[in-house]
Simulated scan of single mutants.
Amino acid sequence: MTVTLYHNRACGTSRNVLALIRAAGIEPVVVEYLRTPPKRAELDVLASRLVVPVRDLLRERGTPYAELGLDNPALSDGQILDAIATHPILLNRPVVMTDTQARPCRPKEILFEILPQARPASA
C-alpha cells in the first residue's frame, strides 16, 4: 500500500501525523505541497479518493480563502480544486491518501480512520 502525506513541516499536526505513520512502520511519500505544489491532475486523484466533501480540503485561517470568495457554497468541486492548485496554501494540512481513500487529518486522530494500524497500542 502506498501512503502519501501532503505535509507542511511548519505545522505541528502535520509533523505528528508523519510521526504516527512512521511509527506504524510505513514510510509515506511526503509531498511538501508548499515547496512542490500538486498539479491539478494530482488534486483530481486526491479528490477521487476523498471520504469527505472536497470543500473539507480548504483551509481558511491564514489563507486568501475569503478574498477569493471561497466561502461561496455554490462553488463546484472543480473550482475549489482550481483554487488549491493556484494557491496551495489553501490545502488544509495534513492530508493522507492511500490507494483507496484520502482524508484531511485534523485532528491527528482522524488518521486512525484510514490507517488503523497507525494507532499506538496505548491509544
Rank of each mutant, 00 (worst) to 15 (best):
L34E: 05
K39M: 03
R15Y: 09
I89E: 05
V30D: 05
D44K: 07
A66D: 04
A41E: 12
V95G: 04
T63C: 04
I114H: 07
V30H: 08
G25K: 08
A41V: 14
L20H: 04
A23Y: 09
D44E: 12
C11F: 06
R106M: 06
A47L: 14
P64N: 03
V96Q: 07
R59Y: 01
R106G: 12
H7G: 01
V17M: 01
T13A: 01
A123Y: 15
S48W: 08
G69K: 06
P107E: 02
K39G: 08
T63M: 06
A85H: 00
V3W: 14
H7S: 01
Y33H: 07
R15K: 11
L70I: 11
A74M: 10
R35F: 03
H7I: 13
A74D: 07
K39T: 12
S14V: 15
A118K: 02
R93F: 11
L91H: 06
I80D: 01
R9V: 15
L5C: 07
E42Q: 13
A47C: 14
R55L: 02
A10H: 10
T98A: 11
Y6R: 00
P37Y: 02
A118T: 15
P38F: 06
M97E: 04
L70M: 02
L57D: 03
P64L: 03
L20M: 13
E27M: 12
L81M: 08
P107S: 03
C11M: 03
G78W: 05
P107H: 03
T86W: 06
L68A: 06
Q101W: 12
G12H: 13
P53H: 06
D71K: 00
V95M: 04
R49C: 07
L5W: 10
I21H: 08
H87M: 04
L46W: 10
N8R: 13
L34H: 07
I80H: 02
P28K: 02
A66I: 15
Y6G: 02
D99R: 12
G69D: 03
P107T: 09
V3A: 11
R106N: 13
L5P: 15
L75Y: 00
V52L: 06
L5M: 13
A47K: 09
M97A: 06
G69Y: 11
T36A: 04
P88N: 00
L43I: 10
P64H: 10
V96L: 11
S48G: 14
T86S: 10
C11R: 03
P94E: 01
A41Q: 09
M1G: 15
I114R: 05
P37N: 07
S14G: 09
L68D: 08
N8T: 14
Y33D: 05
L18Y: 05
I114A: 05
A85P: 13
R119W: 02
T63S: 04
Y65M: 00
E42G: 11
D71W: 04
P28V: 05
V30E: 08
I80V: 15
I89D: 00
A19V: 14
